[in-house]
Write a protein that binds this DNA or RNA. Structure first.
Ligand SMILES: [Zn+2]
Ligand SMILES: [Zn+2]
Ligand SMILES: [Zn+2]
Ligand SMILES: [Zn+2]
Lengths: 136, 136
DNA sequence: TATAAACTCTATAATAACAATAGAGTCAAC
DNA sequence: GTTGACTCTATTGTTATTATAGAGTTTATA
């Protein structure tokens, strides 16, 4: 049985994060030692790695909770999982589009300054001050 | 002179947001009426639109504060503005790359489920459970 | 054995940029 | 004079952690 510090090392999740996941019911309340220290077995490692994998895909804690719940009822259909994934993918793609557009605007704005000028003449600030959002 | 509600309508910033910007010193403390209502003139409109424009480019409030400060000392060089913009652009591009990679992984993961299966056989959950982060 | 170092515990606050609410006060119209 | 729309301040919530504070536990060393 590992204490929380070792679990942290093994999984790469910080100690506070592990406690946080417990409070949020993503992992079960751990057994306690006589001195009230949390004790974990291998299943805790697996579960934490599952969560970490999900987080690396930007899935939210509620989404992960849902996946874990589905995982516990292995007989159910996986439509719910699919719907969630589809929604999540859509959000990510929307965000990519937003940022791409943003990036174009920022680069255009950046080109409007050629250094060696004073702020008074700075194209960046002038453009930002313009009431219209368009930059060209 | 406008009260905060009208300023909100004109600029498209919510009333709370305007108060928030005041607290964060992005806009000056407004004059007050006898009844202690905030009163704004046209310069407040301009400044709020400037801020809104910056926010639409995902510039942070501290970054905007910096731009506003530079705007007030028009004789200074604009190297600082440029450095900030460059850093900001870099961050946006990094985030785009991250999300693009994420999106590929999510789509791959999504393909591993073909519906009509039970959760037990679900490729998504199986892949998420795999210790390795790779999905293929 | 005493003590110090390293670890753990709970509870609370901070992060970013607001949104939402509570409870009270102001103002205009009817 | 009372309704309704508006405003005020102050507080809390949002997300997923991170960072404290202050106290207790365990392990290693002098
Ligand atoms: Zn999601
Ligand atoms: Zn410039
Ligand atoms: Zn930035
Ligand atoms: Zn499936």
């Amino acid at each position: 049985m590992k204490k929380i510090g070792e679990l942290s090392k093994v999984t790469g999740c910080s100690v506070q994060t592990i406690r946080h996941y417990e409070k949020e019911h993503l992992i079960a309340s751990a057994e306690r030692s006589e001195g009230n220290f949390r004790l974990y077995d291998e299943s805790a490692v697996e579960r934490l790695l599952f969560i970490k994998h999900c987080r690396s895909l930007d899935l939210s804690l509620p989404e992960i909770r849902q996946l874990l719940a589905l995982n516990r009822s292995p007989g159910s259909q996986c439509d719910d999982v699919n719907r969630m994934m589809d929604r999540h993918i859509e959000q990510v793609e929307t965000r990519i589009q937003e940022l791409t557009k943003l990036n174009e605007q920022l680069r255009m704005l950046r080109r409007s300054c050629t250094n060696r000028r004073t702020v008074e003449q700075c194209g960046i600030l002038r453009n930002l001050s313009a009431t219209s959002v368009s930059i060209g």
